[in-house]
């Protein structure tokens, strides 16, 4: 029982890590809660569903396309909606409400195109392999989720430390005005950040789809978990998001060990509110 519980927590933590990493990346440069972030996970998953399951395109190609389309839509949202608002120095609340609008529109369009039913997304590999670790069972999909979480985290860390693009992002998030003065095209940087963050969200959505299935509203619950993970970990920092994600995964899974599973979302939000009250800057104080 206990090993399985720990494994489940780690898997949940890995999924939240992916969402939190993308969300945090965007938050750190733009400083607003982009609530449309979660729906891009659904976009990625449904693109794979459409290409692989409805048209029969090769699964790897579909995954790449799904990630790319999610990233591209995130990029477009920035250029069409958020950039004009930022130029007008709109308040965070205006941006938040606009992102709520974007979220509602995209989610509803997905429901119109693919119905609002719950559907399964298969990797076309036939029988799913399972592994046993210390008496707990983990599927191959879940192992992939865990590995993706690690790889993306490492990738972002390397990007921030080693590349000039990563340093430009850090500069933009520290102080956008100064970054502009030293010649960084901050709007272009932010546009790319939206692409990368949204692409990661798309990947998260696809992986969740393989693991449990897809429905148009999947984005919202993923987003909320990602936001909660970011805040309890320490918003705007890579490590913080990851730490928060695993913390949330453990609390949730050990919570439903005692009370029934439907209360997962309520547990997550109760945790958020406790953190907002007692430790609003999260585990890692940035």
């Amino acid at each position: 029982m206990l090993p399985q519980l720990i494994l489940n927590s780690i898997i949940a933590g890995s999924i939240y890590t992916l969402v939190a990493l993308g969300f945090n990346l965007i938050y750190s440069t733009t400083k607003f809660f982009n609530l449309a972030h979660g729906v891009l996970a659904a976009v990625g998953a449904y693109i794979v569903f459409f290409l692989a399951q409805m048209l029969g395109v090769d699964i790897y190609l579909s995954v790449v396309a799904g990630i790319f389309v999610a990233g591209f839509i995130g990029y477009l949202l920035d250029k069409i909606v958020y950039l004009p608002l930022r130029k007008r120095k709109a308040s965070n609340m205006v941006l938040l409400v606009a992102s709520l609008g974007a979220f509602t529109v995209i989610q509803a369009i997905i429901a119109i195109l693919f119905s609002s039913q719950f559907q399964t997304l298969s990797r076309n590999i036939g029988f799913e392999k399972t592994y046993e670790i210390f008496g707990g069972i983990i599927t191959q999909t879940q192992l992939i989720i865990f590995l993706c979480g690690i790889v993306i985290m490492a990738g972002l860390l390397i990007m921030f430390k080693k590349t000039s693009f990563g340093k430009a992002i850090v500069a933009t998030s520290d102080n956008e005005e100064v970054a502009k003065i030293v010649g960084i095209n901050t709007n272009r940087i932010i546009g790319r950040v939206f692409f990368i963050g949204s692409a990661i969200a798309g990947l998260a959505g696809i992986l969740v789809g393989f693991d449990t299935g897809i429905e148009p509203t999947m984005g919202m619950s993923l987003l909320l978990k990602g936001v909660i993970a970011s805040i309890i970990g320490g918003i705007g920092s890579v490590y913080g998001g990851v730490l928060g994600a695993f913390f949330l995964g453990f609390v949730e899974n050990f919570g439903i060990w005692q009370i029934s599973g439907e209360w997962k979302d309520a547990i997550a939000f109760a945790l958020l509110i406790i953190f907002l009250i007692f430790r609003p800057r999260g585990l890692i104080n940035k």
Binding site: V81, A90, V94, A98, G101, T104, V105, I109
Partner: peptide, 20 residues
């Protein structure tokens, strides 16, 4: 079924346009 979703599309777009 579609009308219910279109309702959401409409008020989502209204929210975005108003903010802009």
């Amino acid at each position: 079924e579609i009308a219910a979703q279109m309702r959401q599309v409409i008020y989502g777009i209204i929210l975005m346009l108003l903010m802009l």
